[in-house]
């Protein structure tokens, strides 16, 4: 019982610390996957309430996505996604938000299933990063991921990612 209370207390403390030191974002992340068969393409979404955290100055942002939150509409497909791409650890993107005149981007490290690569993603924002949107192709090859295939249907290298974040 004491252990449970200790964990609950720690979790509460962690949440309070994030809220006190930075801002949180919720919203939606969708991804579109094409395959070698033109008739087969599918969309997925992240079903997670809080998606990102950032520091008060909005210079650094961290996106952390539970691999269980990736949903494509077919459970077996979600399982394959975890087995062949995501693994069981969360997908993380830790980046610095930079703006050169009107052009803003998030540059940092994306970590999928223990493999890290550097990504530079153009972002759009409104009201001083009150809302952030981005749309970019993600290369599985660059992330050192072997493109999965299933019964003759092979996923294409480029996955289109659409991100919409709203500051809480």
């Amino acid at each position: 019982m004491k252990t449970i209370l200790w964990f609950a207390g720690f979790a509460l403390f962690s949440q309070t610390t994030i809220a006190a030191t930075g801002v949180t974002y919720s919203g939606a992340i969708d991804f579109q996957v094409k395959t070698n068969v033109r008739a087969i393409k599918f969309d997925g979404e992240i079903q997670q309430s809080q998606i990102a955290t950032a520091d008060k100055e909005l210079k650094n942002i961290q996106i952390k996505l539970d691999s269980q939150s990736f949903k494509t509409g077919v459970e077996l497909r979600d399982e394959h996604l975890r087995e062949q791409i995501l693994g069981n650890s969360p997908l993380e993107f830790t980046a610095e938000l930079k703006c050169i005149e009107e052009n803003c981007f998030a540059e940092g490290i994306i970590k999928i299933n223990g493999i890290e690569t550097v990504q530079k993603i153009p972002v759009q924002h409104k009201k001083d990063f009150q809302s952030i949107t981005a749309e970019f192709p993600l290369s599985l090859e660059e992330l050192k991921i072997t493109t999965p295939s299933y019964l003759g249907v092979k996923v294409q290298d480029q996955v289109l990612v659409k991100l919409r974040l709203e500051r809480n």
Partner: peptide, 28 residues
Amino acid sequence: SGKGYFSCLACHTQSTGSGLLTDYGKGI
């Protein structure tokens, strides 16, 4: 069609759907 399968050819051997399934269709 709500799960990303706009075309019947994703899972069926012909464009109007029904009938024989492709290997992928059998998997689905």
